[in-house]
Write a protein that binds this DNA or RNA. Structure first.
Length: 666
RNA sequence: GCGCCCGUAGCUCAGUUGGAUAGAGCGUUUGGCUACGAACCAAAAGGUCGCACGUUCGAGUCGUGCCGGGCGCACCA
């Protein structure tokens, strides 16, 4: 429903309150009644007014009486058929169904675009480039990608980053593996990474997955070997030596694998920002100056943090607490030996995101992805000229999709950044925290681990469901179903559809949960195509499309004939019990814009996922109740076709927001 | 000890700024394909919304205190 329409009603209502009761209200609550028979919009405002009137005049008024007065004052709003008082004092409005319906047929669900000078920088995926991606990583990527789609749909300008920690401990561990556990020269590693193979388990990221867990065991056997990790990490950070070269090669190759995996799920990026550049281009040194100048960080000359630069805890109301506990929340940014902590480096990186650092990366083209988008990557040495590439960074706010375990460091990063850049728009920046994916007892058993309850995945132990394995299984299962139903299609086409179904199943499975809910991954549930699943929603859209295919006329053709329908036919469509249920479907289809706004405001893609499922469910009931093509009344048939078309459009749009395609057939 | 998240049907989970009779999927039982293909639909059974106070005309939703589970709180990243 267009927002301006609802806002107009609100304003009118506020005016009536002013005229009738002389009360100034800034806003009124508005909601959708639980049943269509009760109306299309409900205002519980009379309850609050009763209270206010009593406070102002001492006069006791019944909420129903107030609602009645308001209803009388609300006459003649275009699009509103009538107002009713219901329950204990609800003011319910009924729309002019025919009018709204015709409006919806021409409306496209896009929100008013925001200021053009604002740009959100969304960081997601950011998998350590040392092993294959697993289902937990996919949750991050799907959440991030879907959030981006929704933000763009409501008019935000978005830049998508994928942070590559190519100089971290995890990469160092695989380098240790190739140097000491399963010794190989760089050329031999290259041979493994670049060997031509169609076998999934021979791909380089799978190879490293196994090696990484072997390294973990190898450390366990002799803790002294951890020295080797520290030395390797140091060499990688320093750069310009054979160890660093090995790390560079491995991480670049694994990043390639990750991008391929994510492409299968229609996920893409604008820029891969690498930690090696943040190190080599001395981002921290610059940020350090900025932080010192503003006084956010101070040098401790005594106490247990003596010799460190720390970010002091915010002054809370509790000044009475002991000295010791006050210093608990102080965050060390520079250690007493002069090295910088992770938090410090991340503050520097985020200042860059906002264009507040005074330094920039160099950039080069990495690849053109499956969508045809140019993916860029940072480099330390002179890259593409600024004139021939996008201007990266300089965002007005950042959004980071990172698991909930990073909440504390993330809060510190934002605190440090806000101390330097306290633009109110920066305050929108947020850590989009999501809970982890664990393995259900059944899933763990399938992977060889016996357990009573859910089990945490562990890259270090090599325990987890690899993303490509799962997608392969989904595609194989979907292909069986497609072949059973559409033997007439060419194999390539069958596979294409199976792929679309697999993506729908996986993405919906990860989006049906709220961000803060732990997902206990279960194969049976994730591999299902029935019930509350992505394919169920696709099926509803495909059914709608089938009607038009059988009809032999495109939807646009039907829309052109709308004007010729008699007003009586339109009135009949929405009258009676059957009319109510058709109207409730139409009205729900019209609410996509509201849902988008809700999802965007809370960075919660689940709202769109749940909406799409509910709309599909309602459509399936409609489909079952009305056999459109055999409808004898031609005008009514046209109108039913238009309803089907409206729902079809909104379903496909909602699916697109979720990163799910609608197959031609299924 | 401090902070955050979770607790809703047998299981897995939704539940927008507090609103009308708390929903869905799976599972169980039963029914519906010579229709736009059943990856669907219909029906039944299943609830002290962890517990107790409080605020409110109204609490699954807000506040306080408990109980139970998970995760953070490094001169690690």
């Amino acid at each position: 429903m267009s927002l301006s329409f609802a806002n107009e009603i609100r304003q009118r209502l506020l005016a009536v309150v002013r005229e009738q009761y002389g009360l100034e209200m800034t806003d009124v609550a508005m909601e959708v009644p639980p049943k269509t028979e009760l109306g299309d919009l409900a205002f519980p405002v009379a309850f609050e007014l009763a209270k206010r009137i009593k406070a102002a005049t001492g006069e006791k008024k019944n909420p129903r009486e107030i609602a009645t007065t308001l209803a009388e004052g609300l006459s003649a709003i275009p699009g509103v058929a009538r107002a009713e008082v219901a329950g204990a004092g609800y003011l319910n409005l009924f729309f002019d169904r025919a009018r709204i319906f015709s409006q919806l047929l021409t409306e496209t669900p896009a929100a008013a675009s925001r200021a053009l000078d604002s740009k959100l920088i969304v960081e997601h995926t950011s998998i350590n480039p040392n092993k294959a991606a697993h289902i937990g990583h996919v949750r991050n990527a799907v959440l991030g990608d879907t959030t981006v789609r929704i933000l763009k749909a409501v008019g935000e300008k978005v830049e998508i980053h994928n942070y590559i920690d190519n100089t971290g401990v995890q990469v160092a561990d695989v380098v240790v593996g190739f140097l000491h556990v399963d010794p190989r020269t760089l050329d031999e590693v290259r041979a493994i990474a670049e060997r031509p193979t169609t076998r999934r388990d021979e791909s380089f990221d799978y190879f490293c997955w196994d090696l990484y867990s072997r390294v973990g065991q190898w450390y366990e056997e002799d803790k002294a070997r951890l020295e080797l990790r520290a030395r390797t990490l140091h060499e990688i950070e320093a750069g310009g030596n054979p160890t660093a070269e090995m790390g560079e090669y491995i991480s670049a190759k694994i990043v390639d694998c990750h991008l391929d995996t994510m492409s299968r799920l229609d996920i893409s990026y604008d820029l891969l920002a690498r930690e090696s550049e943040i190190l080599h281009l001395k981002f921290w040194a610059q940020a350090f100056e900025n932080l010192k100048n503003t006084g956010v960080i101070v040098f401790e000359t005594e106490g247990r943090n003596k010799g460190c630069w720390v970010m002091r805890a915010e002054e809370g109301g509790e000044a009475t607490s002991e000295e010791e506990s006050e210093h608990d929340a102080d965050k060390i940014i520079v250690r007493s030996n002069g090295t910088v902590t992770y938090t410090g480096k991340d503050i520097a990186y985020h200042l860059w995101k906002l264009g507040k650092l005074g330094l920039d990366f160099y950039y080069r083209k990495l690849r053109t992805d499956h969508r045809g988008n140019q993916v860029w990557i940072t480099t330390s040495e002179a890259g593409e000229a600024a004139a021939t590439r996008p201007l990266f960074g300089n965002g007005t706010a950042f959004l980071n999709v990172i698991d909930v375990g990073q909440s504390y460091p993330q809060a510190n990063v934002k605190r440090g950044v806000m101390a330097i850049d306290h633009d109110e728009r920066v305050a929108r920046s947020a850590h989009l925290a999501y809970e982890k994916v664990t393995l259900s007892a059944d899933a763990a058993r399938e992977l060889g681990v016996e357990s009573e309850g859910a089990v945490s995945m562990s890259g270090r132990k090599g325990l987890g469901v690899k993303a490509d394995d799962l997608i392969d299984r989904l595609e194989a299962n979907a292909l069986v179903e497609v072949q059973a139903r559409h033997a007439e299609l060419a194999e390539a086409e069958q596979k294409r559809i199976a792929h679309q179904i697999a993506v729908a199943a996986l993405r919906y499975f990860l989006l049906k949960f709220t961000r803060t809910s732990i997902i206990a991954f279960d194969f049976k549930e994730a591999l299902s195509f029935e019930g509350e699943t992505g394919p169920y929603i696709q099926y509803a859209a495909v059914r709608a499309n089938n009607i038009f295919r059988k009809l032999g006329r495109p939807p646009a053709d039907i829309r052109d004939g709308f004007g010729a329908c008699a007003p009586e036919a339109l009135a009949a469509l929405f009258s009676g019990e059957t009319g109510n249920s058709i109207w409730s479907l139409v009205y729900f289809a019209g609410r996509l814009t509201d849902i988008m706004q809700l999802a965007a405001a809370g960075f919660e893609p689940t709202h769109v996922a749940k909406y799409a499922f509910q709309l599909a469910k309602q459509f399936n009931i409609f489909y079952h109740d009305h056999h459109i093509l055999s409808e004898p009344d031609e005008a009514r048939r046209t109108l039913l076709l238009l309803v089907a078309d409206l729902v079809r459009c909104r379903l496909e749009q909602a699916l697109a927001l979720l990163g799910i395609e609608t197959p031609e057939k299924m």
